[in-house]
Nucleic acid binder design. Structure first.
Lengths: 342, 342
DNA sequence: TTGAAAGCGCTACCAT
DNA sequence: ATGGTAGCGCTTTCAA
């Protein structure tokens, strides 16, 4: 590693040492093939000797595309969100990209964020939070940058979507509650829920109808005034204070579910003795002894795979038809609504 | 926004429309000052008209430095780790950088990761997991890239470190347990713990000694054979199976603590009636009704701030003396070892 | 204060 | 298969 001064080693240096042109060096490190075995070896040897590393900035500038992928996230403190990010990072790196991660709060932030992504000539944008403005997406498309959304409303043209199969989840839950003989059923969601939560609720009501359950069942919508664990907990307290009762409760996410369960416990009620409760997300916490929550499992790994597949497909040909992928979910039976499989 | 074809708008285009040279355009968007008010306005106007955006790749290539900051993470499924990342993202974006996030498993991965960071000419590297090989760090330093480690062993020259004040934590915990009249005290940690966990244990023992507690106290080291929640839970089971007893237990992290507590509960023992238990990290979960865990709070926000301050300082002058910052911690008193403040 | 011009390090086209 | 060369879009002296 004969690095004498400050200047970094360039392809030119390698070319000189190997006695070839810098074009050949570029071919070797740009994976373009078309290099004689012998030349290839000489170049690699020289590169190692000098400690040569491709300058991705220069490469991207030329190719008009970096090996960066922009990821829009929010509220990583939610365990499901961070495990989703984990899955995405995994797949992104696996495919040879690097993740440019930005946390976004408001809609304006999403805008500047996506703009920055384009300024880095990212190879793709993954949106896990917020709704990308159609205009911005258009900008991306013009730059040939594919955009894919995860678990959100699929109403933007030219954007692919990957979403957990909420209908399937709803059916699984409806069947489970029915099997357990529940008659009064509730749906718990945050008042200002994301599209994802709302959709899960819609699908649940729909599933109940299809199963012919809405007739002989009581169906209630429990609205949490705050989000997350505390929201769920407060909802339970209010629920009890109002003297309500329910057999089975399905929750829009794991945080709400854990909170609601704890809230009920504070009121002397517990699952599965007093009611059944089923969550969404299957975060690690739901598996713990204090909760043992029956929950819908979202397949993060599969989601991430599909997302990257969408990205690569559209990157190959930007004008392909919009993809909307549903990822199958599983019902994980645990203590709060027990069944055969455990 | 007169975008006619595919080619993206360049500084050249803006210059032409504004009737100035591209040098001036560069000055405006590179924040170099030295541009007449009038010219400045003309340029901004033209840029808006054309929808001009600086190409960060080209900019970085020239400046030999991108506005990217590399962040090395691992196991984001651990709530503390994801909240730390959240804090870092916040601060990184706040300071006008973009985060290049990479999840790392083994030591080799850290190596290729850091290499990739340098290939993007990042403005800094933040290591939250793994120990950067001295050689690689040297490479970064040669490129003028500052490196800072969070909560890890401070044994690498030219790298700054930011670490929660484990000694302070240990003293707070020792005092609390003493105040509660604990006589047999335990320290729970994962067998193959990170440096952070080991250091916390060392500091705890040291604090106990300094307080003169090791004399009249029984001090045990409980070793968890697995990591995380399950590790803690299993440790509790083994602990009980071996018929051991302890008054007060301090845990290397929140996951272990919650697991241990649940494991004890499965054995019919609970805090604070049968023992006191104090965790580390103050993750959201520890605050929940099912745990109400007394815990050491790490100040993620302050940590992130200091990290970026280190980065910027060393970026300004790479040869400044190594910084090792201790971030003060707080003891959050909750149910598992109650006190005055709650 | 502004403009001209020389690169930054790499890719890709065109010859050979 | 290889080399020459013209950029990619921007920054930064150096002169004016």
């Amino acid at each position: 590693m004969g690095s004498r001064s400050h200047r970094s080693v360039t392809a030119q240096d390698v070319a000189k040492l190997a006695g070839v042109s810098r074009a050949s060096v570029s071919r070797v490190f740009g994976n373009q093939g078309n290099v004689a075995r012998e030349t290839h070896e000489k170049i690699v040897k020289a590169a190692n000797e000098l400690g040569y590393q491709v300058n991705f900035l220069a490469q991207g500038l030329n190719r008009k595309r970096s090996q960066l992928i922009g990821v829009v996230v929010a509220r990583l403190s939610d365990p499901f969100r961070s495990s989703l990010l984990e899955g995405l990072l995994n797949e992104i790196q696996h495919k040879g990209y690097q993740a440019l991660v930005t946390e976004v709060r408001g809609a304006e932030e999403l805008e500047t964020t996506m703009r920055r992504f384009t300024q880095f000539r990212v190879s793709g944008v993954i949106v896990t939070s917020g709704q990308p403005p159609a205009e911005l997406v258009k900008e991306c498309v013009q730059h040939g940058i594919p955009v894919v959304g995860i678990n959100r409303h699929m109403d933007i043209p030219d954007v692919d979507f990957v979403c957990s199969d909420n209908k399937m989840a709803a059916l699984l839950v409806a069947e489970q509650l029915m099997r357990c003989g529940c008659h009064s059923i509730g749906w718990l969601n945050y008042q200002q829920s994301t599209w994802s939560g709302i959709n899960r609720g819609d699908m649940f009501r729909q599933a109940m109808t299809e199963k012919g359950l809405l007739g002989d069942c009581d169906f209630q919508h429990i609205i949490a005034e705050a989000d997350g664990y505390e929201g769920g907990r407060q909802a339970a307290h209010r629920f009890c204070a109002e003297g309500k009762k329910l057999d089975g409760i399905f929750c829009a996410n794991a945080q709400l579910a854990c909170g609601f369960l704890d809230g009920m416990r504070e009121n002397g009620l517990d699952a599965p003795t007093d009611f059944h409760i089923i969550g969404f997300d299957n975060t690690p916490q739901t598996a713990q002894y204090s909760y043992r929550l029956t929950t819908i499992h979202q397949d993060v790994t599969e989601t991430a795979k599909r997302v990257l597949s969408c990205l690569e497909a559209r990157s190959h040909d930007p004008r392909i038809v919009q993809r909307m992928e549903k990822i199958p979910v599983k019902l994980v039976l645990r203590n709060t609504s027990p069944g055969q499989n455990e």
